[in-house]
Design a protein around this nucleic acid. Structure first.
Lengths: 152, 152
DNA sequence: TTCAATTCCTAGTTTAATACTAGGAATTTC
DNA sequence: GAAATTCCTAGTATTAAACTAGGAATTGAA
């Protein structure tokens, strides 16, 4: 039940971007330095955020990324799902009919996965990016994680 | 954020055991057949359940496993945590001080992981094994999953 | 008392997913 | 036109998951 580095790094990148993109676009390399994340890898993560419509890119010198929507209109759930694909603990939670579980009425556990899925989504959807940015500014005026071995 | 087969198979095994161990101990091989799970692998999973004190074993011919406690005293959370170790999405959620995240006051995201963790645990702890067994008996009098490619 | 059925334990192997790295094309500013 | 950027894809390395294998210990029954 672990979140991959996609979700972990990606959320940090998003907070970073939210903090620094108000005046000018934020480049991948600057996020990578502040957050201690590999530049090439981060690029791929940010591209997922872009595909999901959470950030916009500006190409060329002086370019970078900015948020596509207001911070209070982007939830942690939006971000994590963009990065991780889906947060459901087991695939059949959502009754995908093309999967093996057509005989799903025989599968009691699907109710368990469904409830877990719902509770995770409820939790992450009610946390908005602006709250995290506010916390981040309070706790850490420098903007970086302070410790690059950090899992957050 | 996927649950591994440990959690998936293990929960099914536990439901199976609860259904069939009232009169006599249930052997690994019989669970393996009913649930379509590899016997050797299942053995390892059940050993985790035993270590966690959820089941008791009876060795020798005619032996097998029985529940260590009443069904309504065993939660899905007990079972999943026994199998998966912990359900927290990121390790630093619980503030492990030996981890890298000593500078955790710099890590905003830890609050996110903490909230997710709490919501998962709340959800799985309020589901008890007896409820699943009841469902299972209703839905599927045969006891097997009906479809062994099922993810549940 | 021996055999078969079981749990118990550990180490090895295979497979798949994750987490990158590499490199070049396209775009834009100065 | 050079530098700074995003964009895109393919390859690789590392790690974790999911088993497989095999033998020792225990017990019940023939």
């Amino acid at each position: 039940m672990k979140l991959s580095t996609k979700g972990r790094y990606g959320l940090r990148a998003m907070i970073d971007m939210a903090r620094y993109s108000e005046e000018e676009p934020v480049s991948i390399s600057s996020i990578a330095v502040r957050q201690g994340i590999s530049e090439g890898y981060l690029e791929q993560l940010v591209s997922l955020l872009k595909k999901a419509g959470l950030v916009k890119s500006i190409r060329g010198a002086g370019g970078g990324y900015i948020l596509a929507r207001a911070m209070d209109d982007i939830s942690v759930g939006d971000i994590l799902r963009a990065l991780e694909g889906s947060l459901e603990p087991v695939r059949c939670a959502a009754f995908y009919s093309e999967e093996g579980c057509m005989a799903s009425d025989g599968c009691v556990t699907k109710y368990v996965w469904q409830k877990i899925n719902e509770s995770i989504n409820r939790t992450v959807d009610e946390m908005k990016l602006n709250e995290l940015v506010r916390e981040s500014r309070q706790m850490n005026p420098d903007g970086d994680c302070g410790n690059h071995k950090c899992n957050g």
